[in-house]
C-alpha cells in the first residue's frame, strides 16, 4: 500500500522536475502579479504595505489555479486514472498523494519566495513570520479545494473557465482569515483567533475534500 503511494509521489515529482519550465510557471505568475500591482497603484510604501498581505495571498491563489488543469486530466486521458481503482492502496489515499504533490509543486515554492515578495511590497518585518505561517496552513487548503474543483470539471470539455468560478466561492473564508491574521499582526494585534480559524478550515478540508474528490473522480471515470 505504502509502496504504491510512494511510487505515485515519486512519479509526480519526477515529472515536475523533468518539465522544469512548466513547473516554475506558477511562481513566475506570482511575481508577474506582484510586479504589476505596484505599477498599477503606484510605488507609495504606505499603500503597498497596507495591501501587501492581500496581494501576496491573491497572487498565491491565482498561481495555484494555473497547475490545476493538469492535475487529473492527463491521467484520465491515458487511462491511468482507471487503474487507481485496481491499485493496492485505497483511492482516497492516492488522491491525497496527488494533492500533496500538487502542493509541493505549487504551494511550497510560493512559501519559499514569499519573504522576497513581502519585501517588494514593504510588508512590516514583524508580520513576515505570520504571513509565512498563514501560507503554510492556507496553501494546502487551496490545493485541496483546487483538486476538488478539477475533479468535478474532469468530464467537461473546457474546464478551465468553470474551474475558477467553482473555486472562487470556496476560498473566500481562507482568504479572509489568512489576510486578516497578517493585517492584525501588522496593526499590532494578536493573530491567534484568525490562525486558529484558518487551522480549523484546514482540518475540515483535509477531512472532507479527499472524500468529495474521490466521489467526483469515480463519477467521471465510470
Amino acid at each position: 500500500m505504502l509502496k504504491s503511494v510512494l511510487a505515485l509521489l515519486r512519479r509526480d515529482l519526477r515529472l515536475a522536475i523533468r518539465h522544469g519550465g512548466e513547473s516554475l510557471m506558477p511562481l513566475l505568475f506570482l511575481f508577474a502579479v506582484l510586479i504589476l500591482v505596484p505599477l498599477g497603484v503606484g510605488p507609495g510604501p504606505n499603500l503597498l504595505s497596507a495591501i501587501a498581505p492581500g496581494m501576496v495571498w491573491v497572487a498565491a491563489l491565482l498561481a495555484s489555479l494555473l497547475a490545476l488543469e493538469g492535475l487529473f486530466r492527463p491521467d484520465l486521458e491515458d487511462g491511468t486514472l482507471e487503474q487507481w481503482w485496481t491499485a493496492p492502496a485505497p483511492v482516497g489515499l492516492l488522491v491525497a498523494t496527488r494533492l500533496f504533490s500538487h502542493w509541493l509543486i505549487t504551494g511550497l515554492p510560493v512559501i519559499l519566495f514569499a519573504p522576497l515578495a513581502a519585501q517588494m511590497l514593504y510588508l512590516p518585518d514583524h508580520a513576515l513570520p505570520v504571513l509565512l505561517l498563514t501560507l503554510l496552513i492556507g496553501t494546502p487548503i487551496l490545493s485541496l479545494i483546487g483538486g476538488l474543483a478539477s475533479a468535478l470539471t474532469l468530464g467537461t470539455k473546457r474546464g478551465s473557465v468553470l474551474l475558477s468560478i467553482l473555486i472562487f466561492p470556496l476560498v473566500v473564508p481562507v482568504l479572509i482569515f489568512a489576510t486578516g491574521a497578517v493585517s492584525a499582526v501588522a496593526d499590532g494585534l494578536s493573530p491567534r483567533a484568525h490562525l486558529g480559524l484558518l487551522t480549523s478550515l484546514l482540518i475540515l478540508a483535509l477531512a472532507l475534500a479527499p472524500l468529495a474528490t474521490t466521489a467526483a473522480l469515480k463519477l467521471n471515470v465510470e
Binding site: L152, G155, T156, I165, A216, E222
Partner: peptide, 21 residues
Amino acid sequence: GIMGLYAAFEDKRKGARVACI
C-alpha cells in the same frame, strides 16, 4: 457554478450527479 457545471456535461445524468456533489 452549479448551473455551469451541469450545462458543461454532454451526459446529463453524469452532469447531474457531479453537480449534486
